[in-house]
Design a protein around this nucleic acid. Sequence first.
DNA 1: TCAACTAGTTTACTTTTAGTAACCACCCTA
DNA 2: TAGGGTGGTTACTAAAAGTAAACTAGTTGA
Lengths: 120, 120
Amino acid sequence: MSTSVGIATDDKGRKQALEPCLEPCPIERGMRVLGGKWKGSILWHLKDGPVRFNDLARQLGGASKKMVTQRLREMEETGLVIREVVSDRPIAVTYEITDFGRTALGFLEELKDWVEQHQI
Amino acid sequence: MSTSVGIATDDKGRKQALEPCLEPCPIERGMRVLGGKWKGSILWHLKDGPVRFNDLARQLGGASKKMVTQRLREMEETGLVIREVVSDRPIAVTYEITDFGRTALGFLEELKDWVEQHQI
DNA sequence: TCAACTAGTTTACTTTTAGTAACCACCCTA
DNA sequence: TAGGGTGGTTACTAAAAGTAAACTAGTTGA
């Protein structure tokens, strides 16, 4: 049984990976949580304080209300943001970044810097 | 004309965003380059040295050859990896991370750490 | 000669995501 | 009462992403 860079060859000469990324490795999992279209931008827009639904949708420009709703629901589930009903009758809702959400801002910033530094 | 958090109200009472993310802001652009399924993992697997196509596909476990090919082509185009034909007759090809590709590893590592620290 | 390897490509789908546009129900103001 | 606002939902379509499995075309070792 010889090996090289994580690939083993068995006694019949068949090759196989020693440590295949069988299922989502950390990087894939992270991308699933933060990588969806608009998710990063939404989090980024919330960093300076709570924002109301329609304002958020307007600021995201290209995103439809449906997209914004969907992404916000997913982000609520993962605990990145919280939805708060500020008043009934005139209904008003704000979305706020959670402490957990804030822990992700650091590397969103790094991503942003990387993109800007390399003209991507 | 009153304003609040990037939203303006014009003289007829209509609201509009002042700085809508009209098109891909840095975070979206970065996600487009690094966020595709498997892209992060591919780059990560290449960080210790060149890897051959089939070995890479095996290590990625879940990914089909078609996906691996597609992602590698995209990553070649963005300059994250280079394809090198090591020999014809037995054909052998390796993929190697570029210097530019390496500049993205820092942020992938931060993503990985973030995921592991928060049990995502 | 057979089986397994190399690096892919091609086909034929299925699934997921993204997106539009219209609509609901209610509120407020001129 | 019309037109704007609030925060969504529904229905439907189009496009992208992903899959397995077969196939090309040649090489290598038993």
